[in-house]
Design a binder for these strands. Structure first.
Lengths: 216, 216
DNA sequence: ATCAAGTCTGAAACTTGTTCTAGATTAGCG
DNA sequence: CGCTAATCTAGAACAAGTTTCAGACTTGAT
């Protein structure tokens, strides 16, 4: 619950970049077998061949580490998705298709998914910045799928709702409380919101347009 | 990650019931100042005047304890809500009104909300049963607000999506990444799904109707 | 090449959730 | 009442996240 060293990351040397990569790689490795609990800081440090203190210098907590891993994986995913854009006619279909593709990717490594998603939702205020980065990337993926160039505030809210559903549905699946089929139905259900017309004037829609409300 | 003693709870003696109450009360107390981190098992035990081992006999983990606390609070809430049912004309308005009332209740004790919600989303498979109870109570509250007597599978999916949004929006608020106004907009946005007509035939809608998919 | 500042290592210590043990208490029953 | 099984207590012990520290190593600038 400490650590304040964000104000613009100083450029890393090559060896440092390599260490960072080794750490993230070891983390994903351990997460793939065993999930959240199997990612133990001492083991990550050992597998990445860095001292425990160094691991904590790079990632100030286990949660930071796993959220950073998620950022990493999201980058891969976004790149993959760009290569073959969704094919549906309606925006809602394209978004649902995109999310189901992401879902299938997560199903391939359910333990890794477990580790990343649990970290994401367990993160407290100290990890706001990093969680927000993940959220912005997810938003970007969804907006890409909609094809919208200049989304209205209402549409942004719809995208947020889709993201909420996405995260929470993942959790219920990971904790064994919902089936894959149910997640699919829920995603398709929420995506229907996209195609709804914007009501002309709704004063509630643009209270606090976007951007996080992170306190100093 | 052990403990299997659910198959019908044996009736508790009076003293046991009292202990259970003391524990839940102490938990809520500690949670109110300090949130999730302030609920420390040793402190709960001390405040409730039971031994640590006894605390663990009643609630096999901190997560179980906090989820049970949430069940407790939900009961209060549901009772309160029944007294003054929502007044909106459309089902979507009534649900939004109900959830916003619940939200305002949580705002009164944000630390307690933090403890309960974090526990809920962090819970792993070992807590499925208890989390599912909370989920069913939440569903009941929402269905009450809709006024629907015999919801269709599609409508149940909508209710699940609303629940997803509710949980996830709470998390973003608790972690300081969304304002109260944003949560309000998101809730109102997702509630618009309720008033959508049921498309006549959608084969996806009734794959795996309801009920948790908890493995033995 | 050399010095200062910053970084990395290894190891121990500390915190808090969880488990375990031995003995005291309690509850139900004949 | 007296017995037995279950429950409760106090406290130690263990596990994993986090912090700390002394000393070795790098880096960058002179």
């Amino acid at each position: 619950m400490t650590a304040e060293v964000r104000p613009a990351s100083p450029p890393l040397t090559e060896r440092q970049e390599a260490r960072r990569r080794r750490i993230l790689h070891a983390t994903a490795e351990l997460a793939c077998r065993g999930g959240f609990d199997a990612v133990q800081m001492r083991e990550v440090a050992e597998a990445a061949e860095v001292a425990l203190g160094t691991l904590y210098r790079y990632f100030p907590s286990k949660i930071h580490l796993l959220v950073a891993t998620m950022q990493d994986q999201l980058d891969h995913l976004h790149a993959t998705l760009r290569k073959r854009p969704p094919s549906g006619a309606a925006a809602s279909e394209r978004v649902a298709e995109t999310l189901m593709r992401a879902f299938r990717a997560l199903q391939r490594e359910p333990n890794l998914a477990d580790a990343m998603v649990r970290a994401l939702t367990f993160a407290d205020r100290g990890v706001s910045r990093e969680v927000d980065t993940v959220s912005r990337r997810t938003t970007a993926i969804i907006l890409d799928a909609t094809g919208l160039e200049h989304p209205t505030p209402r549409q942004l809210s719809v995208v947020r709702v889709i993201e909420h559903t996405w995260h929470s549905a993942l959790i219920t699946w990971l904790s064994g409380r919902a089936s894959i089929a149910q997640v699919k139905v829920d995603i398709e259900t929420v995506c229907r919101l996209i195609d709804l017309p914007d009501p002309a004037a709704d004063p509630a829609a643009d209270a606090e347009p976007a951007g996080p409300a992170v306190p100093a």
